[in-house]
Design a protein around this nucleic acid. Structure first.
Lengths: 127, 127
DNA sequence: CTCACGGATAGATGCCTGTCGATGGAACCA
DNA sequence: TGGTTCCATCGACAGGCATCTATCCGTGAG
């Protein structure tokens, strides 16, 4: 469903609040090299919590794989078998976590993936 | 307290925007390549949910950074300011998620990181 | 203007979860 | 043997969360 894309106002996604302790230096991740402090743990947990839900994982996956790399709510409601308010609710959580962006064009809201978000997360966890 | 220098207000400059994400079809993770199904989403969410807690993130971090790569409950209780049952509770969750292992020796239970667990998680998320 | 449609929000509800104190069991020591 | 230490489990409680229905807002077409 690609509804003629005209000019849209891309709202800069709500920022990743206090930022993430990203950018591992070399091999080892930030998580495993040294004990992280409470603040870093809270920030990381905030992002992980946004992803730690089956519905939201499928939303991220569906948005990323959707044609054009973006999808509107109406594209996502039916495949998941949930109501529109529930989908909007989950998308908002992913938006506020900095994982998705929202672009309102006409009557539709197009959600797209923020590639750097998951990459940063992976770099914190991985080797 | 060991200061790593990258603490604090590390701003995540997400400005990739919808510039030119052309030809992103190459490596790409399982999550982003195709829409995952409900079963895959549930499995992934289970692991993520185990990590999506500040206390458990700090536990993983502390265990990994502890001398010998393992730590007992008594090593972890005081630094976190939580009671022993609470720490045991969190460790059990990490254990059942396959993120930590437990080795009972004498009176102590030694918990250690499962390296492959986080690596696998990172590979699913990142490129 | 009026109306239909896509989407966001509000309020309600039932389940899940993080935390605690209390208890019980296993291992070690004297 | 008795006492002490380390840890797991239990029961309880407050707060959080996923989901729904009902409603409201903005956009575009008549």
């Amino acid at each position: 469903m690609t509804h003629t894309g005209l000019v849209g106002t891309t709202e800069v996604s709500i920022q990743v609040r206090a930022g993430l302790p990203l950018l591992a230096d070399e091999c080892c991740s930030t998580l495993l090299r040294d004990p992280i402090n409470a603040s870093q743990a809270a920030d990381l947990a905030r992002i992980l919590k946004a992803l730690a839900d089956p519905t939201r994982l499928r939303l991220v996956s569906m948005v990323a794989a959707h044609q054009g790399g973006e999808a509107c709510v109406c594209d996502l409601t039916d495949p998941l078998g949930l109501t529109q308010p529930t989908i909007s609710h989950h998308l908002k959580i992913l938006l506020e976590a900095g994982i998705l962006t929202r672009d309102k064009r006409g009557k539709w809201s197009y959600y797209a993936l923020v590639p750097a978000a998951l990459e940063a997360l992976a770099s914190v966890l991985g080797p």
